[in-house]
């Protein structure tokens, strides 16, 4: 499709290595960020299992609580929590790049946009905690 300049035969092309994402810290951070979505999915499944246990009755709810106190479940959830928080932080930090706002002709600074997201996060978390507890 592209027309090369006639030097085609002698061009040296490097193949992208399979572990390209280990070559730079920023690439690795990117892949971790993307894989955090798997733990988001796990968290959502965990919450659905909880909802199902609650709906099934007090005994099932208690046994769900006991199960979630098992060491391996706690470990998975601790790791999941760390990665879910990482997802949230990286999401809010890049939001200003995608969301360009202008108020009265002047651009809203990036840290204000990010700050608004963090504020919303704090508010929603407080409300949810208050409802649940």
């Amino acid at each position: 499709m592209t027309e090369y300049t006639g030097l085609y035969q002698r061009l040296y092309r490097t193949r992208v290595p399979i572990l390209w994402w280990l070559r730079r810290r920023s690439y690795l951070a990117f892949v971790v960020r993307e894989l955090s979505s798997v733990f988001v999915a796990w968290a959502v499944v965990f919450l659905l299992l909880l909802a199902h246990a609650v709906a099934s009755g007090p005994r099932q709810y208690q046994s769900f609580l006991a199960w979630s106190a098992a060491p391996w479940v706690l470990t998975v959830n601790a790791v999941a929590l760390a990665l879910v928080v990482y997802h949230a932080v990286t999401w809010f930090n890049v939001a200003p790049q995608a969301l360009v706002l202008r108020v009265r002709g002047r651009r809203v600074p990036a840290r204000v946009v990010a700050g608004l997201h963090y504020g919303l996060w704090a508010l929603v978390s407080a409300v949810v905690a208050w409802i649940v507890i």
Partner: peptide, 26 residues
Amino acid sequence: CTFVGECSRACPKGVDPAGAIQRYKV
């Protein structure tokens, strides 16, 4: 584009192409 963001980090003129792409997705 998967919004790696390295393009904007590398840009010497502050163009922020990653931001341009995300805005275009919207």
